[in-house]
Structures are given as C-alpha cells and as structure tokens.
Design a protein around this nucleic acid. Structure first.
Lengths: 270, 270
DNA sequence: TACCGCTTGTGAACGCATGCACAAAGTCGC
DNA sequence: GCGACTTTGTGCATGCGTTCACAAGCGGTA
C-alpha cells in the first residue's frame, strides 16, 4: 500500500522479476479470446485485489441490511473510492452488472469470493503467541467468512499445550509436520525479529505458500512463496513524516512559500 | 486510499493518489527553485517514505554492529530493494553520500530521522484496549527510537484505571481533553468496527492530525487529517488470492494454457 | 600531480494505475 | 413498441513510480 506494497517489493526482486510482463509483451494478443477464469485472474492488478477485499466487506454489510442491488456510485462511496475505479476493478473479474440498474449484491459477493479464493477455506497458522499472537488467534471469526486458524506455535515451554482461542499451542519444531498435516496454506509470523527468519524457513519447508509477516525483518524466501509485510514501526514513522511535513508547511505559509495554503484549513499554527 | 475516498493501506501495496494532487495539478511549476528542506519534503513520494523507515531500521542495526560506512548496494540488499531505487530514495532527502566510498551510517540515520520527524518525539494514544490494544500498548519501546505511548482509552468500566504497560486506561469520553492536554499527535484505533468512527471523531476533535486505523472501517475525516489503515482481513484475503491464482496457474500448465510456466518452480502440482 | 577505479546521483524511458468521458446496453414510462 | 433516462464497461490520456544506464565526482596510487 500505501504505501509500500507489502514486502512484495522487498524479497525476490533483486533479480528483476520477469513474472509476466515480459511474457505478455512480445505476444501481441493471441490467447485473449480464451478468457478462462484462471487466465483473467492473473491480470488483476495487486492494488485492485486489495480493494476487492474491501468491496467484499462493504457488500456483506449491505446484504445484512437487506440490499438487493447496488450502483457503482453507492458502493464506491461506501468503500471510499472513485466510482470509475470501482467499475474498472469489478471489470477485472467479469461483467456482472446490469446497465441502468447496478449490481446484484449477492452475485457480486459470490464472484469476489471466488476470485479471492475464499470458496475453499484457507487454513492459517500463527507463529509467536505473544500479545500480538493472542490477538490474531482470537481474531478467529473474521468479518464475513473466516480464515480458520488451525495451528498455533511458540517456543516458550510454559505456553506449549495451553489453549489459546480454543486451540493448543505447539512447539515451533513441529511446524513442518503439523503444517503439512493440516494443509496450512497461510502462515502468520508474529515472533520477535531474531526468530522470524528461522520460523519462516520452517513454514516454507512445510509447504506454506504465503506468509504474513509482522516481524520488522526482511524475510528471505524462495520465489514461489508470497510474503506480505505489516510493519507497525513503519506505519507510525510514515505518519510522523506527515506530522512533520504539515508543521513545516504551516511554518512556510507564514510568509515564505504561498503555494500550499489551499489545504491548510483551520489549524492553529503559531 | 485517502481521506473520504478511502484510507492509505499501510501495507503495501497500494500507493494511492495523495490529497495534494488537486493542488499541484492546477499550479504548473513555479516555486521549484527554492528547495528548502520543507519544500523538498513535500516532494518525497509516499512509497519512498515507507522505504526510508525500513532503511532507518537496517542502518540502526548496522550502526550497532559498528559499521561506519555503507554502499548503496549493501544497504539495498539488506533492505531487500533494488540499489537504484535506494539511491533515488536517498536523493529525495539530499546528497549525503561520497562517490567512490558510500554513505556514512551515522549521517544517514540522522538525516532520515530528521525527514521522518523523529527528532521531536511524537506522542501516541491507543484507543481500544482489547487483545490488539494490549499488544500495541506494550510495543512501547520500538526498535530504535520510540514513539512514546502517552494515553490509553477504552469504554469497558472494568478496564478504566487499570495500568497496561505502566499507563492507566482512561475513558474514551476523556479523549478530547486528555489528548489535547498531552499533545497527542498520532491516534491509534484498535476498537471494534462500530466504535471506530465515533472514536475517530473525538480524536480529530482533540486536534490529532494522524490516525492509524486497525478497525475494518472506512473512516470519514476532514481533509487535514491523515489516515493509514492496517486491515488484517484484507491482508489475508490478498494472500488467499495468491494461493488461488497459484493453484489455477499450476492447473493451467498441466495441458491447457502453456504461457505461464516460467515461474512455477518445483511445487508438486497433482 | 595525474590517472584509475569505484560509487553516487540523476536524466530519461518504461510500465502501471488512476481518472475522465463516452458509447453501449439495459430499464422504465407512456 | 418506442423514446428517454440511467448506469455499466472501457478506450484513452495523464501522472506517478520504478528501472536503466551513464556522467560526474571522489579517494587511492604511482
């Protein structure tokens, strides 16, 4: 995001990733007439995928409220985006709207869930049962359909066997066997920084394909593993930057550079 | 994803249009020749700011290890980015390198801290002392210099007055007075979704300029308030999408569409 | 002092994402 | 059945961010 794209920009990129751009580029437009779902899925921009998840949540809320159909404008406002962008995002997954009317909420929910792979439930393992790990383990029932957390791991002997959110904590040495056994597809790392890489390696070893990393560490993973990063320190520092910028701009508008005054509404400066 | 049209997704991915686009658009390029620090700060791309925070952490680690200087290549590898990108990012904040040698670690740390506004410590308030709130409150000493958490809020009467991480929990009705009094500049929302907007309004009322939102809700804020969003459900769903895509591609390479086989390395498919 | 090798800093090209504006397509009213 | 209105879906242009490639600049060396 915002920001920075997860760790997507951080890991396997040193060798410039020829993922698909260089492949689709030389090929003019040959295979375009076979829009199998799998083919189209590949073409969805990462940013759009993240927004689809937001639309899905908003739509679920609307369905609970009994809405049958929704226009792109309504949905866009509720999701906090431009309506043109929303329509383009939806067009990536197909044409499920009716011109002059809008979209059927139920249909849209179903299609987005299908594209996001939520139809088959993804098994999640959380590693590192500290404060954050507890929070994640108890997050269990997500808004709407959930990602079942099927395994918890830690090193602390006092924690092993203790049930957290109804699931006993296992030792991280058992990650490979347990994750393989329970077919975990997503691993969440909430350990202290020094342990993160080791834990990551074990998850990969167990066949986990995607990792959500809360540890402030740049993980090294094979190309076929996807990593997304959530870094609280970075988030705060970006906000801090904005505070500082704002203060500087405010100071600047007091006599020096008059170019940024259109948006400085109301705050007491001096 | 910004203000009323959506929040910036902290993670990654999403480098959306800043609110300033509307300002820079009509004004061609007049004041560019006065590159005062405040002016230049405005020109740093959001994505670059997030990376600067990462560089800062890596540099701190290097300093602890006793490194005096570092080349862009070294730092880039450690931070998991392209070296050209790293140099461009650093060029946004000035020219502090020595050609043929590299960058002085201490100087770089100091400059990045200055740009990120870390020289004056930012006071942080956490609202919603559930599992996640606990985790955040105890995060206290961040890696490197910290953001002092100076206030905690909740509605639960059983929590009010209880010290968490050495700080007593206050009632959310007191947000305006306490935040103003302690000069809180960053508010963190870790409440259940229904409470998020109300809490947000009170924080804004108290003069908080930046908000980090963990609640899965699109917040409505005035233009002068900056919001960043961390959405666990979205993160998981994006990963889920990748799992699904991977499975589809793997299936596709088994005889149907031969165009995406370059990157499917090694995973057992059948 | 003059040369050589190394690393920075940046101009320019490229690609992706956003936003605009409009044609296509459907519904509703008469 | 037909026309007017509404809303989708998308081609196109614009701007941002990333990457490449190279000149400029600095330290070391003879």
């Amino acid at each position: 995001m915002a920001a920075q794209r997860g760790q997507r920009n951080g890991v396997g990129d040193t060798p410039p990733a020829p993922t698909a751009a260089e492949i689709t580029a030389p090929i003019p437009r040959v295979v375009a007439e076979v829009p199998a779902a799998r083919e189209r899925a590949r073409a969805i921009p990462e940013a759009a995928v993240a927004r689809l998840a937001v639309y899905l949540r908003v739509l679920s809320g609307m369905q609970d409220q009994g809405s049958g159909t929704v226009s792109s404008e309504e949905l866009a406002v509720a999701a906090g985006v431009n309506s043109a962008k929303l329509r383009k995002d939806l067009s990536y997954i197909g044409s499920y709207g009716t011109r002059g009317v809008g979209y059927e909420v139920a249909v849209l929910i179903e299609e987005i869930e299908r594209i996001l792979g939520l139809t088959r439930k993804q098994s999640v393992a959380v590693v590192g049962i500290g404060n954050l790990g507890h929070a994640l383990a108890n997050y269990g029932g997500f808004p709407g359909r959930g990602f079942p957390v099927t395994a918890l791991f830690d090193v602390d002997p006092d924690l092993i066997g203790v049930p957290v959110g109804g699931l006993p904590v296992e030792h991280i040495d058992d990650i490979p066997t347990i994750c393989a056994e329970r077919e975990v597809s997503i691993g969440v790392i909430a350990t202290p920084p020094p342990a993160a890489q080791t834990v990551c390696d074990r998850l990969v070893e167990a066949g986990v394909q995607c990792i959500l990393n809360f540890a402030p560490v740049v993980l090294q993973v094979p190309d076929h593993v996807e990593v997304r990063k959530v870094d609280l320190a970075v988030e705060l520092q970006v906000l801090s930057f904005h505070v500082a910028r704002r203060a500087d701009n405010a100071a600047a508008t007091n006599g020096v550079a008059p170019e940024f005054n259109g948006k400085v509404n109301g705050m007491v400066v001096t």
